[in-house]
Structures are given as C-alpha cells and as structure tokens.
C-alpha cells in the first residue's frame, strides 16, 4: 500500500482556449482521503486524470514521494481508479474483473482468485463472484469496480465521481463504504466530486477548485466555517448574501454592526455572507423586519425563507420545534447571531 505523498507541482493543461488546470498545486499525504470539489469544468477531473497518467499535462510535475512519475505511462503508475460510468469489463465475470489488475501483474491464478475473493468479501459481494456485470445493479457494479481498483494494492486510489450515477440511498451507503475501506486499508485516495455533501462527509481534506486553480484546501469544518474566498463560501454550503454598508473593519447589516472577517478596509455598500444557521427568525407582529415566504420542514430543523423590507431573500435554519409560528405570510424579526461575517 501507499507509503509516499502524492505531489502535483504547477500543473497546467489547456484544451484549446480553455485553461483546465492553471499552475495547479496539490499535496496528498499518506493515508489521507482528499476530495477535489468544484463546479463542472473547474478542472478537477483533469487533475485526477493527470495523476492517473490518462491525460498529459502541458507543464508541471507529478511526484510520488521522491519519484518523478510525470512521464510514466498510466499502466505503470500502480494507481487504482474507479470511474463515474460503470467501467467493468462486460466479457469478464465479477471475479475476473477484480483479478484483472493482478493478472496484468502476472500473479498466478490461485493467488488472484484468493485476493479477488478477499476483496469481494470486503465489498459484500463474495456470493456474486461468478456473475457478469450486466447481472448486477449499479451500486453492485461500483462495488466491484472499487474492489478491482484496490485488488492490486495501488499506491493511490483515484475516484472520479464514482457515486454520481447512483440513486440517493445507494450513494449514501457506498460513500460510507468507500471511506471505511480506505481507512481500513490505509490507502491514500484522491476523490473527485461536484457534490459538496459527499466531499464533506468522507474526506480528511477538501480542495475547492475554480477555473483550474485550487481556491482553498482544508478540513471540511474549516472550509465551512472559515472559507478563504467568496467563491468557497458560496460553493460550500448555503450562503446568504445580505446587503449592508461596510465601514473599514465593520459592516452594518439589518440594523446591527458586525466585525468583518476578511477586512480590506473598504468603505461603502457591500454584501455580507451569512450561513442560514447563523440567522435567527422570531415571529414578531410589531417590530418585524421581514415576512416569511416559505417554510420547508427538514426533520430536526426547518428552512425558513424570509423577505426583508428592502426585498432581500434570506434563508434561515431554525429548530423545527421553534418554527411552528413561522408560516408563510407571518411577520418576523430576522437577526444575525454571528459575531463576525465575511463580506464580498
């Protein structure tokens, strides 16, 4: 299994006029699961394909520990990959699919079967080893693909949106399974997704990408609570953009002053970035500053969409037991409970 860090140094890649990767740097530590998160076209899949050797970068270097593997062909990189589309070989049985990488490494048949059996047991498909891919459900096929990618003990496990073709329930189960396997085998993994929930749920660190660059890489908590840029703040989780007036290090919104986290000393109109859970909504007939537009029950909490007097829409997340009066049309007082806010 992997014993060395994966390093991408100043990788650039263009597709015609499009800059898929622009001086992209990344380091994935041993045993870590790093997710690359970003909107379509941000370059996350290209980065993964460069690591796999399936895409050739225009410049920059890929290193695995001290070794420069920039020019190493894909089949010699020893990296297991799980693709978005079910990529099982339709002419091979489940067992043969899992053992494929071992066959390529000239492992004898008995050892191949033994290892494939172990992996299939790990993914809970040991009774399906003689079946063919078309006889399996989507979730089962991706489990087999995962077993195939892990069977030859790759130095890095690469996951290219492996859950996006699955339905919600299977997706949720399989993502936990990926994490469980990655932790138990100690495999270093790079996981590409456009689904922030997926990335935040199972990753040690999440790298948010935009326009071929890494905007921020941090732990899920840190990314959510301390986004480094407006793009990260907007992309990770739900964010309200509330108009206000900035006066250097403070900003005035909804009639109160707050410290600015990312102060640039700007003076004038601005937008404050506030998470829904940092907003309180209380039903008040007399001193109201907003009206409830919709209320969505989510279980323990409810999402309340309010419209302020100046027409700004604000989303708040309130405990469901405190939201019974917050029905559409109710006059409410919206307040911000945070001490510090980001401004755009």
């Amino acid at each position: 299994m992997s014993k060395e860090n994966l390093i991408l140094q100043s990788i650039s890649k263009r597709f015609g006029a499009v800059h898929a990767l622009d001086n992209f740097d990344l380091e994935v530590k041993v045993g870590e699961l790093v997710a690359l998160l970003g909107p379509s076209g941000c370059g996350k899949t290209t980065a993964l394909r460069v690591v796999a050797g399936l895409e050739r970068q225009d410049s920059g270097a890929v290193k695995l520990g001290g070794r420069d593997i920039t020019n190493l062909p894909a089949h010699l990189r020893n990296m297991g990959m799980v693709f978005q589309a079910y990529s099982l070989f339709p002419n091979l049985s489940v067992e043969e699919n899992v053992a494929f990488g071992l066959q390529m490494r000239k492992v004898n048949k008995r050892d191949r079967q033994k290892k494939a059996g172990e992996l299939l047991e790990l993914v809970g498909l040991n009774t399906q080893h003689k079946r063919f891919p078309h006889q399996l459900s989507g979730g089962q096929q991706q489990r087999v693909a995962l077993a195939r990618a892990l069977a030859f003990e790759p130095e890095i496990l690469l996951l290219d949106e492996p859950l996006s073709a699955l339905d919600a329930q299977v997706r949720s189960n399989l993502r936990e399974e990926i994490r469980r396997l990655q932790l138990s085998l100690g495999t270093t993994a790079l996981f590409v997704t456009h689904d922030q929930e997926e990335a935040m749920a199972i990753s040690d660190r999440v790298g948010v990408m935009s326009h071929g660059k890494l905007e921020q890489i941090a732990s899920p908590d840190s990314l959510y609570n301390n986004p480094a840029t407006e793009f990260v703040a907007g992309f990770v989780g739900v964010m309200n953009y509330i108009p206000g007036y900035q006066n250097g290090k403070s900003v005035s919104i909804l009639g109160s002053d707050f410290k600015v986290k990312n102060s640039s000393g700007h003076q004038g109109a601005t937008s404050a970035l506030v998470r829904p859970e940092s907003i309180t909504v209380v039903a008040k007939e007399n001193s109201s500053n907003a009206v409830v537009v919709t209320r969505s029950f989510l279980g323990a909490s409810s999402r309340i969409l309010c419209k302020t007097l100046d027409g700004t829409l604000i989303q708040a997340l309130v405990p469901s037991e405190e939201s019974s009066e917050l029905i559409p049309g109710a006059k409410v007082q919206v307040k911000i409970s945070a001490n510090e806010v980001l401004v755009s």
């Binding site: 796999a52 050797g53 399936l54 062909p73 894909a74 089949h75 010699l76 990189r77 020893n78 990296m79 297991g80 990959m81 693709f83 589309a85 990529s87 099982l88 070989f89 002419n91 494929f100 990488g101 390529m104 490494r105 693909a145 195939r148 990618a149 030859f152 690469l158």
Partner: peptide, 23 residues
C-alpha cells in the same frame, strides 16, 4: 464505452496492446 473500458484496463496495469487484445 470504448474510452472508459480502455482507461479502466490501462489504469489497472494493461498496456495498450493488452487492453486491445484482452478487453
């Protein structure tokens, strides 16, 4: 799905020739 199959074969350790012949 030629692209996916050949890339899956290559990332699992098959050279181009083996990917074509075996997969």
């Amino acid at each position: 799905p030629l692209k996916t199959l050949s890339e899956a074969a290559r990332s699992a350790g098959a050279s181009w020739l083996r990917a074509i012949v075996i997969v």
